[in-house]
Simulated scan of single mutants.
Amino acid sequence: MRRGQWAKERERLWAASHEGVISIDDLVALGVPERTAYRRTQEDGPWTLLAPATFLLSNGEPTRRQLEIAALVYAGDGAVLTGWGGARHYGLRRGAVPESVHVLISWDRSVLSTPTITVERTRRLPRAIVRDGLAVAPLVRCLTDGARRTKDLTEIAAVFAEAVQKRQVLAEALRTELDCGSRKGTAAPRRVLIAVEAGVWSAAEYETREFWLSWDDLPEIEWNTTIYDEDGLFLAVADGLVREVGLVLQVDSVEHHFATPEQVQQTLEYHRRLRAAGLHVLGIRPAQRRDDPGGLHTDILDALDVARLLPPPRVRYEARTA
């Protein structure tokens, strides 16, 4: 085929593809013999085989979007993206997106998974929602499907908390979805959901809550409580609050030496506001939980003792729900 003819054919095929992704059936319908199509995916060929019978009309590295399109083309009618990757199409950014694209298909169909595409059959195939031009499961389903395949509790907490804090889903909706779907792999997300329903807003807060609950001698604590002064003016949202003694926990998500000057200044101002109202503040860093749990426990007990000696704080509290 001459260069000019090849360029015209490539333009014609690309126009018929989904951003360069096309099935063998469509190629044959467009006049490309099956044998020719597969030959073009061989070494140094112009095309790439992304999945069985699913082609990329170039030999470059496919983008994540092209891999998702290929997964939908390969999985066929009714397939939808799900999991952490699907959640990205709703603007969420927490959680590591697996290299494999996760798609759902109807239970009565049979499509095998590949090294780059995880095909899950389900009796509860959700209605597709078009996000960024692609068929995606509803966000609550993406979150629970991703959580079922994730063992890291902190990662699950980060994703769940982001979605709930942004008011994109309700904690109750996550629990309902976990109850309605397969029980396989739901132990970890159910444990995390208890913390989210208790008001935890971040992975760092989740880890701190787990640490707190591991000690029998620590009192009841609440999370993300809004604090006002005596005149009703907003002071802060306390990451953690022991209301009975007026102790506030500030849960840092990064180590102090990684904080920017602006973050350091904001922390100082946060402490001053709360201390001026009669509250005692204790900052907790990730390294303390990880490297010196016994020392952190002692620091908390000391802070509780100090808080008990102080006069009652001049504040009002308003609990914030998940």
Rank of each mutant, 00 (worst) to 15 (best):
D216N: 12
P189Q: 09
N224Y: 09
S214R: 11
H257G: 05
R167Y: 05
C180D: 14
V237F: 04
G181F: 06
A147H: 00
G199Q: 05
I227P: 07
S202H: 03
L153R: 15
L174T: 07
L170K: 15
D145T: 13
L249V: 03
R183Q: 13
T186P: 03
L249C: 01
G199E: 04
A163V: 13
S182I: 03
V140E: 13
G185M: 08
D217Y: 08
V192P: 01
A173C: 08
L174P: 06
A161S: 14
V245I: 15
P261S: 08
I194M: 06
I194S: 07
R175C: 01
L143Y: 07
D217A: 09
A158L: 00
V248F: 07
Q168T: 08
E197L: 14
I194F: 05
R209I: 08
I227Y: 04
T150Y: 01
L178F: 03
E230H: 14
D252H: 14
E207G: 03
G199P: 07
S253L: 10
D216E: 14
A158V: 01
V196T: 09
V248H: 06
Q165G: 08
G232H: 10
R149G: 06
L139D: 00
L139N: 00
C142Y: 08
L235N: 10
L213R: 03
V159R: 02
V251H: 02
A135D: 05
A173K: 11
L235F: 13
W212I: 02
A147Y: 00
V169L: 12
E177Y: 02
F258E: 15
I227S: 05
D179L: 14
